[in-house]
């Protein structure tokens, strides 16, 4: 952790005293008590976890895969995984952060297995298309067509596959879930500077991945 900030220093935050808040201790929350009950094989507690997070998990999966049929299958897998591995949950992060990471990983495992990404990853995008999508203006009055949205969706999934699981979860929590750096710090148990460094690096990797796609072997021969 310190190594990260040492290699990529951020200026010290002004007013460090005000920033130095008491970090949320995930071991003492109401959620932690629920987790401990699940760890003690309390099935009612596990049911509560499922009911509390099922809508969230479904939404995350649907957001990534855009397929309701697959969403249930993967959601079941996510909760089964939670059931079997909650014993290893160490309270360093919030339960939601942990579940979020498992969910995103399951989605990517699914994509890997089904080779869904291959449909667009290596074949369908020309360099021009990639360039146009990546460098498109962030907001335009004209809504993109369905095809364009699908292409954008596939492209961002592919770019996200190029970064680590941790970076992927973090950047999705920031951009998709809309959490602030401060909230992410509370959720993950990392300090804000570390979050900023990790987000910056993840964004840089995404930019580089997009550039590689543009320059990739798929570039059509120039005429």
């Amino acid at each position: 952790m310190s190594g990260l900030t040492a290699t990529l220093p951020f200026p010290a935050t002004t007013g460090g005293a005000t920033r130095a808040k008491t970090r949320l201790d995930h071991r003492t929350t109401e959620e932690a008590a629920l987790v401990r009950r699940v760890q003690a094989h309390d099935e009612i507690a596990f049911r509560e976890v499922v009911e509390r997070y099922q809508a969230k998990v479904f939404s995350i999966i649907y957001g990534i895969l855009r397929n309701r049929n697959d969403a249930e299958d993967i959601a079941q897998q996510v909760f089964a995984k939670i059931y079997f591995s909650i014993g290893h949950f160490d309270f360093r992060s919030s339960l939601l952060t942990w579940i979020y990471k498992i969910t995103v990983n399951e989605c990517y495992d699914y994509l890997r297995k089904k080779r869904v990404r291959k449909l667009v990853y290596e074949s369908d995008f020309s360099a021009d298309e990639t360039h146009r999508i990546v460098n498109s203006e962030p907001a335009t009055d004209q809504a993109p067509s369905v095809d364009e949205r699908l292409a954008q969706h596939d492209l961002i999934l592919k770019l996200l596959s190029k970064i680590s699981e941790e970076d992927r979860s973090l950047i999705l929590l920031k951009e998709v879930e809309g959490h602030s750096v401060e909230e992410l710090s509370e959720m993950t148990g990392m300090n804000e500077n570390t979050i900023k460094v990790k987000l910056f690096r993840a964004r840089q990797k995404l930019v580089k991945a997009a550039q590689r796609l543009e320059k990739g072997p798929l570039t059509p021969p120039s005429i």
Binding site: N135, P138, I156, V176, E177, R203
Partner: peptide, 13 residues
């Protein structure tokens, strides 16, 4: 570019 990618990322919502 990062802003454009932010827009793409938010499309996963």
């Amino acid at each position: 570019v990062m802003q454009s990618q932010g827009v793409l990322l938010r499309s996963l919502r």
